[in-house]
Nucleic acid binder design. Sequence first.
DNA 1: TATTGTTATACTCTATAACTATA
DNA 2: TATAGTTATAGAGTATAACAATA
Lengths: 159, 159
Amino acid sequence: MNIPLVPPEDPSTVDIGQLNNSLALLLRLAQVRMYDQFFVAFSGTDVRPGEMTVLWTIDLNPGIKQGVLGRVLSIKPAHATKLIQRLVDAGFIERRVPPEDRRSVRLSLTAEGRGHLERHRETFQNLYAAADIGLTEAEHRALLKLLRKLAFDGAQACP
Amino acid sequence: MNIPLVPPEDPSTVDIGQLNNSLALLLRLAQVRMYDQFFVAFSGTDVRPGEMTVLWTIDLNPGIKQGVLGRVLSIKPAHATKLIQRLVDAGFIERRVPPEDRRSVRLSLTAEGRGHLERHRETFQNLYAAADIGLTEAEHRALLKLLRKLAFDGAQACP
DNA sequence: TATTGTTATACTCTATAACTATA
DNA sequence: TATAGTTATAGAGTATAACAATA
């Protein structure tokens, strides 16, 4: 409750009080930094933030239905349609309408899609590597574990 | 590396492999859930995600320059202009062009702005409260501490 | 010439609702 | 009637670039 008589001129001296304990702000700031790092790491490519996780998940679950994929990654149907369509156009994903339920769409990677994933897999996995952000390996693991609880609400298997 | 012979029909049985250790995905999913909780908590109001932190910070640092505020909260100038303008229009913020540098804008809360902040402060601070997300108090504190390192890159004072 | 803030434009992700086709 | 996906539209947040006023 120390209101400064003279307003701070330097961002590092600004008091944000209990905002230091706000998950809402801290998650947003961490996310913004992640976003920045993403575009540095993937500059020159036309890989977008949401695409790697989609390709990765389809690779591990070939034939997954678009709706199931969307529920796993929290991608809403309307957005999934556009995101998938772009990856189909790029030649990375194949769509198949299965005979047992012709409303649905099953997804799998093309050979080109697998190649694309392999080329960028390491870059993606190393995003926000511990060394870059001043965390020890133990802190990094702890952070992942806690974020999984937030992200999956305890419903997801987290080995 | 256990590619299922039959694709999973249930999101909870989908294997996401090393995506479980991806800060990029986990931060996004946690952020999406935060977003959801924000709109539940603030439904019926017209408070937007970015506004509370802005009002909060101006309250603690009256007379702060718009650029300094933006650098603290990672809000780019173009977005800051629109966000602040909306809060001025709502009657929550006063803008003042100081004589010592007439390029800049200094911000402070109106009485109405302070009232608005007080009315919503607790709701905002309780967003993603520990109990709601299956974290113990200790885990919650640990998560905040780790996120501060990501969010502020070690540059910010974190008591 | 550099800095502060503004305007204009575009892109990503998200949200909602109305729609088609299938079940 | 319900479900899977599509289309259309809108909003919040971010990004960039060009600009005006001031330093």
